[in-house]
Design a binder for these strands. Structure first.
Lengths: 188, 188, 188, 188
DNA sequence: TATGAATGAGGTTTCATTCAT
DNA sequence: AATGAATGAAACCTCATTCAT
């Protein structure tokens, strides 16, 4: 792992634990095992680091989401697939998923283009569009559906990580969550 | 408006705009038109200010929510009522509503009791419990329903405040939002 | 002496000795016997301190120059008077006089209005104008005369402070200097 | 232009614009289009660069000055010649001329021998000495005359570069300047 | 000769907080 | 209750310099 990546990894851990303000750049450098100046060699400012970290996580998520699109006809199982994949990614990458929320609630949010912000949703965007066209989903503004889908994912994630559940409970919650989202979106 | 209230009002505006870290106590005092020391005369620490602001907003919201509970029998219209009331409050008090989310995402979160955090939800809690018992809502863990309900409200709020809509569009979104939440929760 | 004045006095001493760059704000605070933050309480930035110091010195010099104008008719002795007063002020306030040169050679120069820069020259400006009108001085652009007058004063000052002369030698140099300047300017 | 020369040229431009402190070595390297390390490959330290630049400019000036000394008998036209040549060089090489002043006001000054500092003045030194001997110039300490001559040249330079004059005005100022200097120095 | 990542000491500035008035 | 000068720890960032390639 390059020093730059070490810095990003350490920053993620510390930002998630202590918040942006609670994390001094010196602390990041120290825990990453690099000199203070090295951090600023790679990222001109703390803000640049914060944003770069966000962008890199979004890219990673987008790639992960992209990896499940084996083009299809029926959207329903595909949609379910996307849902499960997202939740699983969130659970397997809790810090990263939490960081996304942290960042998007912060004033840094405005530093990033909408494109970056929505890039992992392309798959979903296409599915939902197709779903509406086929009258499998309700005919509502696509952005609204996406926004609500995302808040729900975040809600389920929160509920999952608050209570420390067994694997079985976890699966139950995930399944329940899917049904609720599906009930919310499906055409009737 | 007393100096203390001026401080709270200014703090709200600045915290929402620039985040907790981005807002120096000196800036709050200055914009509130009081001396630096005055702020600390009313709030022993910055943290105390942050928390007091949260608590006061929550109380205000709780009172507002409480004002619509004329004891209930039928839950459905009541539930709808609560939803509309919440969204309207959020739109009429954007900064305050956003501040709630900001605070709850922040490390300050742990400074506040669960009771305070959920106090405005009592009505909702009772309604949902009753709704499940009466088989009007789906039988799922009450906390899960509450969490998802809240994320959805926040999602709708976000969608509403992002696009600058006309009053008519706004009403449409609010109505759509209700239907979606209701579809998600209702017994079938 | 107020803390603010202590800071200014210490800054003068250190800037003259070590240059702007060679003087850390922390060093100024320390030698002035105040806390680091106190310096920044009074001067928002180091640059503001540098400029404020310049302005205060210029004001002091302007006041000192103003104090010798007992309005007169004959300009020649008056002019001589101004010359001697300036040189004496420079020798009695070496740090301050040197600081003026330091500042005006530095990039900070552009932070200050022309008015501030020339304020101590009002007396001189009037005298020279009058001198030209009366055909006692050569008819050249007033700004040019002022500029050359000033560079000469600075040259004489440099020559005086380079060699460590006796009081007698010093007087001789000062007298010589006057004659040279007078020869340069006088109508013929 | 070799990389070394590119570095010197860029350093000159930046030092003159932003001062020594305001100019980071990294900035110089960047603007010169070379790598950071390359600068230090050619100049062991920043100070070495600053001094080397000064020395090279002084050499250039000395050579330029030397080019007009075809052994002399009459000093007056020769003297005038030297004056015009200096002013013209200063105007044709503003950054370089300004840099000389900058350097000599700075703490780096002490890094350089008197010989280097006065090398371009040899011609002048000889002329003035001769002029005094022949009773064409006033009998004053040679160093004093040199110092005042130099401050005057600098004064004229400043006056010329401040106002943006036409070529005709510029010539007038240069001529006036010569007369003033000559009036100041000539035996009477 | 040329590069540019890496360094870490040290600089400027911020800021929550205190306290005498 | 209200003030604002004073504090000093700690934050962010700069920068001359080194060194392996």
């Amino acid at each position: 792992m390059s020093k730059k990546q070490q810095i990003l990894a350490t920053a993620l851990k510390l930002f998630v634990t202590n918040g942006f303000h609670g994390t001094a750049t010196a602390k990041i450098a120290e825990e990453a095992g690099v000199a203070n100046g090295t951090l600023f060699h790679h990222f001109k400012t703390k803000e640049e680091l914060v944003v770069a970290l966000y962008v890199s996580i979004k890219e990673e998520l987008a790639i992960s989401m992209g990896s499940i699109t084996h083009a299809t006809e029926f959207i329903t199982p595909q949609f379910k697939n996307v849902y499960y994949h997202t939740i699983e990614w969130a659970l397997a990458n809790r810090d990263k998923f939490y960081y996304i929320g942290l960042f998007e609630m912060s004033p840094y949010r405005s530093q990033v283009s909408n494109e970056t912000m929505w890039q992992q949703s392309i798959v979903l965007y296409q599915l939902i569009t197709e779903g509406i066209r086929k009258k499998l989903l309700q005919p509502r503004p696509i952005d609204m559906l996406l926004t609500l889908y995302n808040s729900n994912i975040f809600g389920i994630y929160q509920y999952l990580t608050r209570g420390a559940n067994s694997e079985k409970e976890r699966q139950a919650v995930i399944n329940d969550g899917y049904e609720m989202i599906w009930d919310m979106l499906k055409f009737r």
